[in-house]
Design a protein around this nucleic acid. Structure first.
Length: 452
RNA sequence: GGAGAGGUGGCCGAGUGGCUUAAGGCGGCGGUUUGCUAAACCGUUGUACGGUCAAAAGCUGUACCGGGGGUUCGAAUCCCCCCCUCUCCGCCA
């Protein structure tokens, strides 16, 4: 037997028992079993309700079935070996050999029945385990809703206007840089058409961000596919629970990515990385597609909430002992963009009640929007600890060790282009409806200083 | 889309129904010897889920040869479906 680790095969992270492919759980089964009370408390903090009594029953039943099945299989394996031995010798046609085969056949039927029972148990058991969200880190404050999020720091000063600031959709329409009517005709609601300097602004923002993250912050630029298979979406946690938020291609196992996090993180699915290679830092610019089911009447005007938007995404595969520091650094990398654009913002540490399903800690960056007189999310930077890594089977090997360990994954928007577009247009608007181009963007706008 | 060839462990690669406990090599780790960025020799080597144990270690069982299903007392090996890779053809930015 050779050394090292077998990577998972294409087609499934970690092939487990043949009759039971490895469950892509977020939390380790043995952890849940041994810390039931802790897990229940964690779920309560998150405001989730999961029936762990049923979990315990099913777990016990499941283990009993595995034990029984494994014992029968052992018997069958031993008997088959005996048959093989006899077939090679003079006992090949003895009546005992035939009897042995007959007995083994009966054993096989029992095993088939047991396996069917196991499958039935697992069809109820697996969804419970899959529905468990990640454990919030100690740095995550306990709270019920977004109102309990903690402000960590604030940067910049909200500009004072000597006129009433207009919303971006009015500014955009008057400047001829944003055409939502045209978007509605060719696609429908929640799509945008950018024109002229507006389209160029979108492109300038993307190029500016990519240049900063690659040259100044040390990320490697990656241009991934915008369509991915369902396995990748399970790896990062969007499936199976959040299928309703996604667009799926008809007649193929392909989905439009809701964020570059999916392809960028899955670049390393099934891989074993060298400890020295950590953290792996990649940045990608992609369109993002969200069906936004359940968004109801929120942000119906303008381009705040779209079915398609563009985003520059930062992803790190990190060492478990460094992931908290790497998360901080990634957040600062995203903040640097806002600072260079001179856009006021604040950093929020999300509480347990507002934390995403897969995250253990999240900082939201909220940019100031004058027309709303409020801070609005423009980036979400999360540490997923080993949650995604377990599902996507992303591992690393410590120097001089044979054993592999789960890595940690981190990602954050650096930044969402559409919302940055809004922030620039609204914060830099003038009394006459023109928009001044921020200094940092001018080289990317062909020297343009003002949209008029 | 069509035809053909393939997919075996960290990597390469043998293996056409039971004497395979997946040969052999490379790599990794540990050691011995020699001495100077090295070589030779010996040993060792993955994952998941169970059992045992207070726990860990250890011991032990089952499963895993691209994925799923089937045939069989018994499948890496035979059959069916699917995915991916390569070569050629077709189409195409």
């Amino acid at each position: 037997m050779a050394a090292g680790v077998r990577p998972s095969k294409p087609g499934g992270p970690g092939a487990g028992r043949s009759e039971r492919p490895k469950l892509e759980a977020m939390l380790e089964l043995s952890y849940v079993r041994e810390h039931l009370a802790e897990v229940e408390a964690m779920l309560a903090n998150r405001g989730a309700t999961v029936d762990l009594t049923r979990f315990r029953e099913l777990d016990q039943r499941r283990r009993a079935l595995i034990l029984q099945g494994d014992q029968l299989k052992q018997e069958r394996n031993q008997a088959s070996e005996e048959v093989a031995r006899r077939k090679r010798g003079p006992e090949r046609d003895a009546p005992e050999t035939a009897a042995l085969i007959a007995r083994n056949r009966a054993l096989g039927e029992k095993i088939t029945a047991l396996d069917a029972e196991s499958k039935a148990i697992e069809s109820e058991f697996d969804p419970i385990l899959l529905s468990l969200p990640n454990r919030p880190s100690a740095a995550t404050p306990v709270g019920r809703s977004a109102d309990d999020n903690q402000e960590v720091r604030r940067w910049g000063q909200a500009r004072t206007f000597d006129f009433t600031p207009q919303p971006h959709w009015d500014l955009g329409a008057k400047l001829g840089i944003l055409d939502l009517d045209a978007a509605a005709r060719i696609s429908g609601a929640r799509f945008a058409v950018y024109r002229g300097a507006g389209a160029r602004l979108e492109r300038a923002l993307a190029n500016f961000m990519l240049d900063r993250h690659t040259a100044a912050h040390g990320y490697t630029e990656v241009l991934p596919p915008s369509l991915v298979n369902s396995q990748s979406l399970r790896g990062t946690g969007q499936l199976p629970k959040f299928a309703a938020d996604l667009f799926k291609c008809e007649g193929a196992d392909l989905w439009l990515i809701p964020t570059a996090e999916v392809p960028l993180t899955n670049l390393y699915a099934g891989q074993v990385l060298d400890e020295a290679a950590l953290p792996v830092c990649v940045v990608g610019y992609t369109p993002c597609f969200r069906s936004e089911a359940g968004a109801y009447g929120r942000d119906v005007r303008g381009i705040m909430r779209q079915h398609q938007f563009q985003k520059v995404e930062l992803v790190k595969i990190a060492h478990p002992e460094q992931s908290a520091a790497d998360h901080e650094k990634l957040t600062r990398d995203a903040e640097a963009i806002l600072q260079e654009l001179e856009l006021p913002y604040r950093v929020m540490n999300l509480c347990t009640g507002d934390l995403g399903f897969s995250a253990s800690q999240t900082y939201d960056l909220e940019v100031w929007l004058p027309s709303q007189n409020a801070f609005r999310e423009i980036s979400s930077c999360s540490n997923f600890s080993d949650f995604q890594a377990r599902r996507a089977n992303i591992r690393f090997r410590r120097q001089g060790k044979n054993k592999t360990e789960l890595a940690h994954t981190i990602n954050g928007s650096g930044l969402a282009i559409g919302r940055t577009w809004i922030a620039v247009v609204e914060n830099y608007q003038q009394a006459d409806g023109g928009v001044v181009i921020p200094q940092a963007l001018r080289p990317y706008m062909g020297g343009l200083e003002r949209m008029q």
